[in-house]
Amino acid sequence: MASQGTKRSYEQMETDGERQNATEIRASVGKMIGGIGRFYIQMCTELKLSDYEGRLIQNSLTIERMVLSAFDERRNKYLEEHPSAGKDPKKTGGPIYRRVNGKWMRELILYDKEEIRRIWRQANNGDDATAGLTHMMIWHSNLNDATYQRTRALVRTGMDPRMCSLMQGSTLPRRSGAAGAAVKGVGTMVMELVRMIKRGINDRNFWRGENGRKTRIAYERMCNILKGKFQTAAQKAMMDQVRESRNPGNAEFEDLTFLARSALILRGSVAHKSCLPACVYGPAVASGYDFEREGYSLVGIDPFRLLQNSQVYSLIRPNENPAHKSQLVWMACHSAAFEDLRVLSFIKGTKVLPRGKLSTRGVQIASNENMETMESSTLELRSRYWAIRTRSGGNTNQQRASAGQISIQPTFSVQRNLPFDRTTIMAAFNGNTEGRTSDMRTEIIRMMESARPEDVSFQGRGVFELSDEKAASPIVPSFDMSNEGSYFFGDNAEEYDN
């Protein structure tokens, strides 16, 4: 783990906690998980779902989305002020799938948001429990990260689609708070800032007046979040320049895209947490497990152990491969979309394939898809080993990566060399080191050039047997250095459309 220093740990961010010791953190995270579980059980009762239907990941996603929508204050306010045809701002819903006479049927349900809020609060001892809501947002974000390569979004903001390893959390809503900021990748933060800068260039009043003052505060806050992700002084200094700019424009845009590229080699610290679907927490609570009393951590053995003992089902389209669908969801559960496939294969105990080789589309089923041909199958979400999630980018030494994705962002704290394609990355730096950030740029390029592919990161860190909950005997895996390590390699994943 990167030293926490003055930073709060993510469990504290996750639970809005002030400084807590490890036991208190485990208890408050457990409380959050228990609340999600209780809410899910109650919703299944309301909807009269069978046990099997309640364990269907598509039903879980609909129920999670309903509660997130019920608590989305800004959108609710907007919907009330701008009524649109056929949208009731006070209601929320989605597809629920039921097994009827041996076939899967889709039923569109509609609930009062007020009623959903009441059920959620009741499951969370009367609190709004925003930490639990954020947790579900991060699960949705991790699922998107594993399912889609955001080529269009990258290109629109002047970045290269091969930089997708920097895009963790790119679909997280803005209201996801400190826990959300911690899991956002460098590219995601750059993209958010670039969008602001572009608006400022096109709209003279963007930075002016009372609204402009708020915009400015948001801009500086985002700059500080991004600065905190960088691990070298030169990158941090460049972020200070971007933040202090009187009138952010093209120079800042250039600096930010430069920094994003540099992060492929001088990786930023991005938190990883295993956020599971509500249909995993519900049955665990129903079986009598007391998360608050037992304590829970999002970055240790607990999620692995929970998945070892969970039964989750998914709808499967006619030509999809259930094992591939399982891999997709497994990666999402562990926030591992940008991790090295060699490491993932070792931990999972079966070969993890790149996205383009998977015969599976996303987990969600569109409303126009034919239910007649839908089957369902068990998702295999178990693992051979477990490993500690990392909050750091690993040290800054790398190795060759593949054509589709030119770097990785480690999820697990496991000893290995970190793949990246130096030639491709360095070719993108057209040696432009003039301007006010020239000395920093020169320094950053120097550090990137001296990074050695064969150097090892996370020295001495290994994986653990599932029986080793105290992480007492690390097993340090050895990897084939020459092997392909990137998930979005030469990829044809669908595009994420909101």
Rank of each mutant, 00 (worst) to 15 (best):
F258G: 01
R389T: 07
N59E: 02
S335Y: 09
R452L: 04
P322R: 08
T62I: 08
G288P: 04
I57M: 13
E11K: 12
G209N: 12
D72L: 00
L49W: 09
Q122D: 00
N321K: 05
Y10G: 02
L56M: 11
G485D: 04
G37E: 12
K198I: 11
Y40L: 03
T147K: 04
A181P: 02
S50P: 01
T437M: 07
C44A: 10
D302Y: 11
S392V: 10
A336N: 01
E18K: 06
R389F: 03
S345I: 09
A472S: 07
K236H: 12
G362F: 04
H82V: 05
G5F: 13
I445D: 01
I63S: 00
S141Y: 09
I225A: 03
S141I: 00
T360I: 13
P474Q: 11
I201Q: 15
Q409V: 15
M371S: 13
A366G: 15
L226F: 11
K184A: 05
D72E: 13
R416V: 05
R384F: 11
I201K: 00
S383F: 04
S438A: 14
A387N: 05
I425F: 09
N76V: 03
N76F: 01
C275D: 03
E320I: 04
F230T: 02
Q415T: 05
D160Y: 08
R204K: 08
S438R: 00
D255V: 10
E484R: 08
N370R: 05
S262D: 07
I425D: 01
D51T: 12
V186T: 06
T157K: 01
N321P: 00
D421E: 14
G462L: 00
Q12V: 04
T390K: 06
S170H: 06
S407W: 02
N205Q: 01
D255A: 06
A336K: 02
A428I: 12
W330Y: 15
E210A: 09
P277S: 11
P318Y: 14
D16V: 08
M163Q: 12
R317K: 10
W120Q: 06
Q122N: 01
T23L: 12
N417C: 15
Q327G: 05
Q364L: 07
R152E: 01
L193C: 05
K87G: 01
S457L: 12
Y313Q: 06
S50R: 07
D16P: 00
S274P: 06
R305N: 13
G209I: 08
K236S: 11
L358D: 05
W139F: 12
K351W: 09
K273I: 02
A131C: 15
E64W: 07
C279V: 13
S326L: 08
G404E: 00
R106D: 06
W330Q: 01
C279D: 07
E449N: 07
M440K: 05
Q58C: 01
Y148W: 09
G180C: 10
W139I: 04
P173C: 01
G102L: 11
P283L: 07
R342G: 07
T134N: 03
Q58A: 00
Q241C: 04
R26T: 07
S245D: 02
D203S: 09
Y52S: 10
V363A: 09
Q364G: 05
M167E: 09
F258C: 08
A336C: 15
D128V: 15
P318S: 07
G460Q: 14
M189E: 01
N124E: 00
R422E: 02
R106V: 10
R98L: 02
A234M: 05
M163R: 00
Q42F: 03
Q4D: 00
I225Q: 15
D145L: 02
A178V: 13
G158S: 15
S438G: 05
Y10A: 11
A451M: 14
T442N: 12
T437S: 13
R208Q: 01
T423E: 00
Q12Y: 08
A366Q: 06
L266R: 10
S69Q: 07
M189Y: 00
I475H: 13
E465L: 00
G209F: 13
Y52M: 10
V242L: 14
A323S: 07
